[in-house]
Design a protein around this nucleic acid. Structure first.
Lengths: 249, 249
DNA sequence: GTGCTACGTTGCGCTGTATGCAACGTTGAT
DNA sequence: ATCAACGTTGCATACAGCGCAACGTAGCAC
């Protein structure tokens, strides 16, 4: 469909067979040398390729970056599953696994609590960015340059009396999450429901998902929910480790 | 430089943050939805992205493929080095490591023999495709669709009385190499010099390089050089294993 | 069922981007 | 000193890529 993009991609595929210079690439792709040069410049700008000191082009670091990220994404759910099941079996609370998809934080797995109370949430549903622990955990890992535009266009509609409704307070909250490494939601998303969430990191070191437990306060007070923090963090660490994350010593 | 390519690459980077649909990508890259659709079509054609059944786009399998190939390339020399040194120390013969770069097979490492005789070769130099063992080993791994055009445009100039000078004979030779898993060069590249070569495979299973020993027949007859085949194959297997290759059981 | 919204998709005409050519610069080999 | 091999640049042209507007369709609310 798109000629220049298609040509650029062919260049990448070609470089998969090994480093090559301008003429070789021009020949093997059947594209004019001038054009190859300009396509490679664009590719190199974005680190998809680079040129060594003898003018040989190679596949660039961005390829590795993307591959690592994609692996993380594909695997989280599968990897997390047994750990979540074990956690859920032991503590019997509603447990969520959420990840960033597009501009949204989406629930990608859910385990029900053992008591009769059910929460309104579903796999595939979007988590409210301003009122859920999982969203806070995931957004807190973004650099400010990515976080700002998201916060600026965020829907701060109030869901309970405790919901954070201003960008300023939200950014303060994110700062707190970054410091302590976990997030809470004290009846901010649903009345009478408290929640805590911890991050899952992948091989790239970045946060790739978040796990949370949600408990109605008729079952446990907020303080008792905090007793779950330690085991929850342990689960998060185990899943992260299985995702290839290596904590800095 | 190149607008559409640049946009396509931004889409890939964006997808590194997680799956996304058309609108989300259009928004985050600031490109019209229609254009995003068309770029993604091109990307998907080449397996750089794919669409799941809920119209979410993901990074595609080609990214993994390229990353694996690039890793192989980057690492062979570093990984091979200690093994080559050990082999060279024990047997004292001229040892070459070669890999495909562009359309050429290039020497990427060389260890001198312990006797006084030196061969004319140098790191960075291109190996003759029609007359060297390393080239035979590397080309033999290519599918016929890639091999044919290379053979068709190959320079079959004769270097010794034994040099293979016709495409037909060369293809027969490649068939032999595929069967036995290693290649020889009986005074085909240089008069009075015999050579045997074995493949190095990477995590992808493909041949990523070749190791060879070259011995002047005043030092060892061709038959005695064949005594080196077993240890050479062992070295090749060790390097392959360190490169992530797992032999099929 | 009906109307609505949210998205993906297509046809079209215009604009600007991508392209090939020809010429120049530089490096390295003979 | 000469030549060849390659990377690089300026330029004019053509056509590829673009945004728009309209259409199709699936899912949801009532």
């Amino acid at each position: 469909m798109s000629q220049s993009v298609s040509r650029a991609l062919h260049l990448l595929v070609q470089l998969g067979n090994g480093p090559a210079n301008l003429d070789q690439l021009a020949e093997s792709t059947g594209v004019h040398k001038t054009t190859v040069l300009r396509l490679l410049r664009t590719l190199s700008d974005e680190r998809f390729t680079f040129r060594d000191n003898s003018n040989q082009y190679h596949l660039g670091s961005r390829i590795f970056e993307l591959a690592a990220q994609a692996t993380d994404q594909r695997e989280v759910r599968r990897i997390a599953s047994p750990h979540l099941v074990a956690f859920n079996r032991e503590y019997g609370r509603t447990t969520h696994l959420a990840a960033m998809e597009g501009g949204d934080v989406v629930y990608i797995d859910k385990l029900e609590s053992h008591d009769q109370i059910r929460m309104y949430s579903r796999i595939g549903l979007r988590a409210n960015l301003n009122s859920t622990a999982v969203a806070k955990v995931i957004l807190a890992d973004l650099p400010d340059s990515e976080l700002r535009p998201i916060v600026d266009s965020m829907d701060f509609s109030s869901r309970t009396a405790n919901t954070i409704t201003t960008p300023e307070r939200y950014l303060d909250e994110i700062r707190l999450v970054r410091e302590q490494g976990w997030a809470h939601d004290q009846e901010e998303n649903e009345p009478s429901v408290n929640c805590i969430g911890v991050p899952i990191r992948g091989a790239s070191g970045r946060v790739v998902a978040a796990v949370s437990v949600s408990v109605p306060d008729v079952v446990l007070s907020y303080e008792r929910v905090l007793d779950l923090l330690e085991p929850l963090q342990a689960v998060g660490a185990r899943i992260s480790r299985d995702c290839g994350y290596r904590a800095q010593p």
